[in-house]
Write a protein that binds this DNA or RNA. Structure first.
Lengths: 207, 207
DNA sequence: AGCGTAGGCCAACAACTGTTGACAGTCCAG
DNA sequence: CTGGACTGTCAACAGTTGTTGGCCTACGCT
């Protein structure tokens, strides 16, 4: 796991095994950065190891040596800690706004989420990872603020649908009106939705 | 353009050119059906012509002869008329519910939308087509019911984000809580959201 | 019946993919 | 200084992909 802030050179690998930093750690980081970019831009299949290696200005065989195979490279590329805080101190009636704003923050600072979304759509491992992230980040919040704990998973799913949908139309499909929307505008529109999904009473079936 | 209802044998091709039905029309339809299934299940790159041909129990070269190349096949596979009606007769305050229900209908009856979503995420042509569909289906409704016509594109984008997000989590990523939700429950939760995106006053920037 | 033509299959192609192994330079510990 | 481990390069592999052209068959019109 590495931090959200994009890599401070001596990151990542040396913490996994607790040995001293290796000479190749810089190369490793370069590969990972190139891989994230390619996966985010092209998805799993079209992000070829050769293209990633070319971006990183090294030989494709290095990628194999350091990450085993393509799946290993992808796993390493998305192995980051997203640390959604949404601390307990947020008043219940603001949880929607805080959550939406934080989500937009993370998404715009980090291309890993775009990569994950692009890959998850055609790759089962990516889909599971994405589900894991959202469950892990959303469930605690839902459990804390929603009226009936039993409904927490459903409410988390509803929030996910709205958040991922915005990410999809804005950052992946790039629908012009969604791209043109100002960050604050998005927050203003989505916050009440998320707030309702998390805290409102369960609506009757249709009406 | 063929109709939404899955093919009545004498469909499609013969209407494009107005000649008499050919002996090969059945094969053409079989190929198209197999292609839709594969594209929906695997996305563009992993849906190989060979696999599609195997599903249709014909030779890969036939696919090429009838559809030119893979892009042509994909274009033919997604060339359907989705005919979202949402007629003018719907009272303004019900437009959200009607729209959500209709959307779920179309989505569950038709694997083409799943194919389009899977492909659009990594393929520019697919993304454009999807955008075209949503603009064409959503803009008229937005123009009719939203307070300020100038905001119609933004509101349509917001609705798209919620609808596509639900489709993504439920039909593509298959988040278990999203899959388990009952159709009526989804409609009950999403309808007010869509209603608000379409008809409510523009909210202030954050608050 | 005979024949043109459309439907279908087979084999092959070039390009590209992930992946591997052998080889050369370079650093550091002894 | 010398050995061994590490970093990096090159060339090649086996498999798969989209795509092509030639060939045989069988229908349907005259």
């Amino acid at each position: 796991m590495i931090e959200t802030d994009t890599d401070s050179d001596t990151t990542a690998a040396e913490r996994a095994r607790d040995t001293a930093p290796r000479r190749s750690d810089a190369t490793r980081a370069t590969i990972l950065a190139a891989a994230r970019e390619r996966f985010a831009a092209d998805g799993y299949e079209r992000a070829t190891i050769r293209a990633i290696a070319r971006d990183a200005r090294i030989d494709p065989s290095m990628v194999m040596r350091y990450y085993g195979n393509k799946e290993g490279l992808f796993a390493a590329a998305i192995d980051i800690d997203l640390r959604l805080p949404v601390p307990d101190t947020v008043p219940r009636e603001d949880v929607g706004r805080v959550f939406v704003e934080h989500f937009l923050d993370v998404w715009e600072r980090n291309e890993v989420l775009t990569a994950l979304l692009r890959v998850g759509v055609t790759n089962a491992a990516g889909a599971e990872r994405m589900q894991g992230i959202f469950k892990q980040q959303l469930m605690p919040v839902a459990l804390r603020v929603c009226p009936d704990p039993e409904q927490a998973p459903a409410r988390a799913a509803l929030v996910s649908s709205q958040m991922l949908g915005m990410a999809l139309t804005r950052y992946v499909l790039r629908f012009p009106p969604a791209v043109d929307l100002h960050r604050d505008e998005i927050a203003a529109w989505l916050a009440p939705t998320v707030q309702r999904y998390l805290t409102a009473a369960h609506p009757g079936r249709s009406d």
